[in-house]
Simulated scan of single mutants.
Amino acid sequence: MPAVPWWAVLSAVTLPVLLIIGWTTAALRQPPGYDPLADTVSALSSYGMIDMVILMSCLAGLGLAHLITAIGLRPVPRIGRIVYGIGGAATILVAAVPKVDSHTPRVHGIAAVVGFVGLAAWPAAAVLPGIRRASRARDRADPAATPGPDRPWVLRPAVGIAVALTMLGLGLWLALQLPDGGLAGLAERMTAGAEVIWPLVVVLTLLRRTRRHPPAPT
């Protein structure tokens, strides 16, 4: 199994840090009427230029960190990395076309949906090749070709599908809260939080595995 490069580990660690810094710094600057449970993160950028710069900078950094992590996740099947990378690129686009004065540009809305879906669905996409190989092995009645317990737990089909469904469920909850739901802010924070924590879990798990079982020299 190929190793996870140091820069992918760094970008994965950066994800939750950037998210917390962006939310906390921007929220502390808001007027008394701001409600973090009801107002979305995008609404933070509509209170002033400084707030918009703070939030959009963190959001752009978040998307870039997702993209770098996707490139560095070498042990993950390519389809999973592509879906993950699309989510990161869409997050950068969300930052490039911000919400201003309560007006949401269409590009911002579309990019936000693509970003949330990509960042939520990639754990399931990453295990699809393993599911297909297992299915072909069963068709050939070849138990030796079926993926065994040596597969990292973060890349096992049951785990990947469960994580993806959980994050997609959080995204659906967010969609139901928009535009006037009373818990839209909470739903968005929980969804984004899950989407930055899981890549870090995957990276650290794969890093530990490659340290315990170094790849054979070529």
Rank of each mutant, 00 (worst) to 15 (best):
P2S: 10
A3L: 12
A3F: 03
W7Q: 14
V13S: 05
L15A: 05
L19Q: 11
I21V: 14
G22K: 05
W23N: 15
W23K: 07
T25G: 05
T25M: 10
R29L: 11
Q30S: 09
Y34M: 12
Y34S: 12
D35V: 04
D35M: 02
T40I: 12
L44E: 11
S45Y: 02
S45I: 06
Y47H: 15
V53F: 09
S57G: 14
S57I: 06
H66F: 10
L67N: 01
L67W: 05
L67Y: 08
I68C: 04
V76T: 01
P98N: 05
K99R: 14
P105S: 06
P105M: 01
G109Q: 11
V117R: 02
V117C: 08
V117D: 06
G118W: 00
L119H: 02
A126M: 01
V127D: 00
G130S: 14
R133Y: 01
S135Q: 10
R136M: 07
R138Q: 09
R138D: 11
D139G: 08
D139E: 08
R140M: 08
T146S: 08
P147K: 07
D150R: 09
D150T: 14
D150Q: 10
R151G: 03
R151L: 15
R151A: 15
W153P: 06
W153L: 06
V154W: 02
V159S: 13
T166I: 13
G171L: 11
W173M: 11
G182F: 01
A184N: 03
A184K: 02
L186N: 01
A187Q: 01
A192F: 09
V196F: 05
W198T: 00
L204G: 10
L206C: 11
R209E: 15
T210P: 01
T210I: 06
R212E: 15
H213W: 12
A216E: 13
P217W: 11
